[in-house]
Computed example of a mutant assay.
Amino acid sequence: MTSARRRLHHDNQTSMELYDKAAQSAAAQIIVHYSTSFGVGARMLSPAHRRHIESVYAMVRIADEIVDTYQGEDAGELLDAFEAEVWRAMDGGFSTNVVAHAFGATARAVGITREQTDPFFASMRMDLERTVHDDESFAAYVFGSAEVVGEMCLAIFINSSSGPRPLDPDLRAGARRLGSAYQKVNFLRDLGSDEDRLGRSYFPGVTSHTLTDADVAALVADCRADIGAAQACLPGLPRRAAAAVSTTIDIYARLLDEIETTPADALTGSRVRVSNGTKLYLAVRNSCPWTAPRRKAGGGTE
């Protein structure tokens, strides 16, 4: 074989490793386009952690887009098909859906199983079936849509180097509470738009029309309690992962501060935000431990 033919043969070869990399690169684009808060945190991670977090975020986002953005009559069928692709990628190691394929590689590498993905997809399906929640359905929804996602992220931080192994119960509880806090903050930020655009009301007994300043105070306090519990677990994470998580905590703490000082009737008409400049400042500060301020329970700093 001539050198030209050998080069052509090499250039055209395919492999599962190449497909894995291509799928992971595609999945990484989802977080770039959808989230500055988690994107900032992800960029602070080690390459291995970042790659896996990007794959989890992409899978979660695609499912969310099916139920929130598409809204077609066949959304349930599309969600079922996407879930089946995720299962196939987790079990068989291959999917023609590159986001499912990337997630499957991550799941096998760190020990994410259907113990986490089944509740997640159950919650996504609830968005197609329920518009109002009671205490029981709200708890089930938050568990599946957010708490198990926090657990997936924890598995990445703890198991990327070692491979699948059981998670520490205290760390898992902290990860779940942090996921819960982030979800509830987003519910508060989107209370008006969720009702107007999607026809959904998540908080039991609370709507954009009945929300009071007392309701806001109680919900903010609940979120801060979850964040405080999660902060106690940060020392159990690898250093760069702890810094990244601390940054997202600080961003959401800023959001809670803004929510707390916004009158209830104004909160439902606009979405509270943290500027990109502030997010970058928080990332730089948390990347330098010697400059990081002492933390208070609930996400604030001293």
Results as ranks from 00 to 15, higher is better:
E73W: 01
E73M: 03
E73L: 04
E73F: 01
D74E: 08
A75F: 02
A75G: 04
G76K: 04
G76T: 06
E77I: 07
E77Y: 03
L78N: 08
L78T: 06
L78I: 10
L78A: 12
D80G: 09
D80I: 06
D80R: 10
D80Y: 05
A81V: 00
F82E: 02
F82C: 03
E83R: 05
V86L: 04
V86E: 01
V86K: 00
V86Y: 01
V86N: 01
V86A: 05
W87H: 02
W87F: 00
W87T: 00
R88D: 10
R88C: 09
R88H: 13
R88N: 11
A89G: 12
A89T: 11
A89D: 08
A89F: 06
A89R: 08
M90V: 11
M90P: 06
D91P: 00
D91A: 04
G92L: 06
G92C: 07
G92V: 03
G93S: 05
G93D: 03
F94S: 00
F94G: 00
F94Y: 04
T96C: 00
N97F: 01
N97V: 02
V98W: 15
V98C: 13
V99G: 03
A102D: 05
F103S: 07
F103Y: 13
F103Q: 05
T106Y: 09
T106C: 15
T106R: 07
A107K: 07
A107D: 11
R108V: 13
R108K: 14
A109P: 07
V110S: 06
G111M: 09
G111P: 09
G111A: 08
G111F: 05
G111N: 07
I112Q: 14
T113S: 15
T113D: 13
T113M: 15
T113Q: 13
T113I: 15
R114F: 02
E115I: 11
E115S: 14
Q116L: 10
T117H: 02
T117D: 03
D118V: 12
D118W: 10
D118L: 14
D118C: 12
D118Q: 15
P119I: 14
P119F: 10
P119K: 09
F121Q: 06
F121S: 05
F121L: 06
F121P: 04
A122V: 11
A122N: 12
S123G: 15
S123R: 10
M124P: 11
M124F: 12
M124E: 11
R125Y: 11
R125I: 11
R125V: 09
R125E: 12
M126N: 09
M126G: 11
M126H: 12
D127N: 05
L128C: 13
L128K: 08
E129D: 14
E129H: 13
R130Q: 14
R130S: 14
T131P: 13
T131W: 14
V132L: 09
V132A: 13
V132W: 12
V132E: 13
H133T: 07
H133Q: 11
H133Y: 15
H133P: 04
D135K: 02
D135G: 03
E136P: 10
E136N: 14
S137V: 07
A139G: 08
A139F: 06
A140D: 09
Y141I: 09
V142T: 04
F143E: 03
F143V: 01
F143W: 02
G144N: 04
G144R: 03
S145D: 07
A146C: 05
A146Y: 02
A146V: 07
E147Q: 01
E147A: 02
E147R: 00
V148L: 04
